Measured scan of single mutants.
Amino acid sequence: ATNIVGKVKWYNSTKNFGFIEQDNGGKDVFVHKSAVDAAGLHSLEEGQDVIFDLEEKQGKAYAVNLRIK
């Protein structure tokens, strides 16, 4: 899925991951530091509006192509 809109539920910059809540009511999506770095960001803030693509690997969904809304 592409261009999914959501809000950062939480992001832990020490542990380098967090979760994004989808605006469409879907399951929360894992986001890793690598996606944050690829977006040219240092971190994510709770409540921040983002747009992302959804990829699945080994049955787990995660956010890629992250951008600030």
Results as ranks from 00 to 15, higher is better:
Ala1Lys: 09
Ile4Gly: 05
Val5Met: 10
Val5Ser: 07
Gly6Ala: 04
Gly6Pro: 00
Val8Gln: 01
Lys9Asn: 03
Trp10Glu: 02
Tyr11Gly: 01
Asn12Ser: 14
Asn12Thr: 07
Ser13Phe: 12
Ser13Asp: 12
Thr14Cys: 05
Lys15Ile: 12
Lys15Glu: 05
Asn16Thr: 07
Gly18Ser: 01
Gly18Glu: 00
Phe19Asp: 00
Phe19Glu: 02
Ile20Asp: 00
Ile20Lys: 00
Glu21Pro: 01
Gln22His: 10
Gln22Arg: 15
Asp23Gln: 15
Asp23Gly: 15
Asn24Tyr: 11
Asn24His: 15
Gly26Leu: 08
Gly26Thr: 14
Lys27Thr: 10
Val29Cys: 04
Val31Pro: 00
Val31Leu: 12
His32Arg: 03
His32Met: 05
Lys33Asp: 02
Lys33Pro: 02
Ser34Gln: 10
Ser34Lys: 15
Ala35Thr: 11
Ala35Trp: 04
Ala35Phe: 06
Ala35Lys: 06
Val36Gln: 02
Val36Ser: 02
Asp37Ala: 15
Asp37Met: 12
Ala39Ser: 08
Ala39Leu: 07
Ala39Gln: 05
Ala39Phe: 03
Ala39Lys: 05
Gly40Leu: 06
Leu41Cys: 04
Leu41Asp: 03
His42Val: 12
His42Met: 12
Ser43Ile: 11
Glu45Asp: 14
Glu45Met: 13
Glu45Cys: 06
Glu45Pro: 13
Glu45Arg: 13
Gly47His: 14
Gly47Val: 03
Gln48Trp: 14
Gln48Thr: 13
Gln48Cys: 05
Asp49Ile: 15
Asp49Asn: 15
Val50Pro: 00
Val50Cys: 04
Ile51Pro: 00
Asp53Met: 03
Glu56Trp: 10
Lys57Val: 11
Lys57Ser: 09
Gln58Cys: 05
Gln58His: 15
Lys60Asp: 07
Lys60Pro: 04
Lys60Ala: 07
Tyr62Gln: 11
Tyr62Thr: 08
Tyr62Met: 10
Ala63Phe: 01
Val64Glu: 08
Asn65Thr: 05
Asn65Ile: 02
Arg67Pro: 00
Arg67Thr: 10
Ile68Met: 13
Lys69Ile: 03
Lys69Ser: 04
